[in-house]
Computed example of a mutant assay.
Amino acid sequence: MTRPLIGIISNLHVVDGSYRTHAGGVMNCEAVSDVCDCIPALIPADPRYVSVEELLETYDGFVLTGGRPNVHPSEYGEDETAAHGTFDRARDAITLPLVRACVQRGQPFLGICRGFQEVAVAMGSTLHPEIRDLPGRMNHRMPPDGTQEEKFALRHKVSFTEGGVFHKLMGAREVMTNTLHGQGVIKAGTRFVVDGLAPDGTPEAAYVEGAPGYTLAVQWHPEYHAAQDPVSRPLFEGLGQAARAWQSDRRARPALRSA
């Protein structure tokens, strides 16, 4: 049997000002291959090329990656402002229904940074466009200068709920993480359970309550040095285990039928 297939949500990039690409960081593929022990495959996040139904039937799990464009505020009932930054409505059209379908089916996923925000919004949460502007909050954004190592350096603690999902997964109540995000969850949806907080109270780790599968999401970037980092490795190992379980059960499940 081949390794499970993990779909990695890509981002739209324009190379040299004119050449449009769908791309994903190499470190995402490394984490999926080396830590999940699964086959990584980039997904063009655009409903013109793929449907949610096709993705569900093709892949054994998903990584919802980080990305510079933000989820459009209309998806959580707010008006667009300059503070919300740039958007990728095509990606919204794929990832939000994909998350809801995976939750219903028990199909595994790991949300990272923007992916964390996608899971939050799909489950009815709201976001603040610039978390550092709130009283008492720190600047969670990527440092503007420095090497990649400096930008992805560990910068703050995340504290998990005693006996919660992440505490059990990590074997620790507190861990150190990097931080490279601007937005943050303000009001969590009913099933979006915040299970880890930064020292300033910003939600950093969450899961979907009552979901039958692996539905974890983190606001930091665990794909960076995932094989060596003791905080990152359990997240991807857990995704790999869930994808193998999904793969082994795939033949026993009926295929989706479009309405």
Results as ranks from 00 to 15, higher is better:
residue 152 F to A: 06
residue 114 R to C: 00
residue 119 V to H: 01
residue 133 D to W: 08
residue 147 T to S: 15
residue 114 R to Q: 05
residue 151 K to N: 10
residue 140 H to P: 03
residue 130 E to I: 07
residue 115 G to A: 07
residue 161 T to V: 15
residue 125 S to I: 00
residue 154 L to W: 12
residue 119 V to D: 03
residue 117 Q to K: 06
residue 156 H to D: 01
residue 114 R to A: 03
residue 116 F to R: 03
residue 118 E to V: 04
residue 158 V to P: 00
residue 154 L to V: 07
residue 117 Q to C: 04
residue 160 F to Y: 15
residue 160 F to P: 00
residue 127 L to K: 02
residue 161 T to F: 10
residue 164 G to I: 09
residue 115 G to T: 06
residue 148 Q to W: 13
residue 150 E to Q: 14
residue 152 F to K: 06
residue 134 L to P: 03
residue 146 G to W: 11
residue 127 L to I: 04
residue 144 P to C: 13
residue 137 R to L: 07
residue 133 D to Q: 11
residue 144 P to Y: 12
residue 117 Q to D: 05
residue 136 G to N: 08
residue 135 P to E: 11
residue 157 K to T: 14
residue 116 F to E: 02
residue 140 H to Y: 05
residue 149 E to T: 14
residue 146 G to A: 09
residue 129 P to A: 07
residue 160 F to C: 07
residue 134 L to S: 05
residue 152 F to C: 11
residue 152 F to V: 09
residue 142 M to V: 13
residue 162 E to D: 15
residue 159 S to A: 15
residue 117 Q to G: 03
residue 156 H to Y: 06
residue 151 K to S: 11
residue 114 R to T: 02
residue 136 G to I: 05
residue 144 P to L: 11
residue 141 R to P: 04
residue 130 E to M: 08
residue 116 F to Q: 04
residue 139 N to P: 07
residue 131 I to P: 01
residue 123 M to W: 01
residue 138 M to T: 12
residue 154 L to C: 11
residue 155 R to L: 08
residue 121 V to N: 01
residue 147 T to M: 12
residue 126 T to C: 05
residue 118 E to G: 04
residue 153 A to S: 13
residue 128 H to Q: 08
residue 150 E to A: 12
residue 138 M to S: 14
residue 143 P to G: 06
residue 148 Q to P: 09
residue 142 M to W: 10
residue 118 E to S: 07
residue 133 D to M: 11
residue 125 S to V: 00
residue 118 E to H: 06
residue 153 A to Y: 10
residue 149 E to Y: 12
residue 121 V to G: 00
residue 155 R to M: 08
residue 143 P to A: 07
residue 153 A to I: 07
residue 145 D to L: 14
residue 127 L to D: 01
residue 148 Q to L: 15
residue 130 E to N: 10
residue 162 E to H: 15
residue 155 R to H: 10
residue 144 P to K: 15
residue 158 V to W: 02
residue 161 T to H: 14
residue 131 I to T: 08
residue 113 C to F: 02
residue 122 A to N: 04
residue 161 T to K: 12
residue 124 G to Y: 01
residue 124 G to H: 01
residue 138 M to H: 13
residue 113 C to Q: 02
residue 146 G to K: 14
residue 146 G to Q: 11
residue 144 P to Q: 14
residue 141 R to K: 14
residue 146 G to T: 09
residue 132 R to H: 09
residue 122 A to C: 07
residue 116 F to K: 02
residue 153 A to M: 09
residue 148 Q to M: 15
residue 126 T to P: 02
residue 123 M to C: 12
residue 161 T to D: 11
residue 134 L to T: 04
residue 162 E to W: 15
residue 138 M to D: 14
residue 162 E to L: 15
residue 160 F to N: 05
residue 126 T to H: 03
residue 127 L to H: 00
residue 127 L to P: 00
residue 133 D to H: 13
residue 152 F to Y: 14
residue 131 I to S: 04
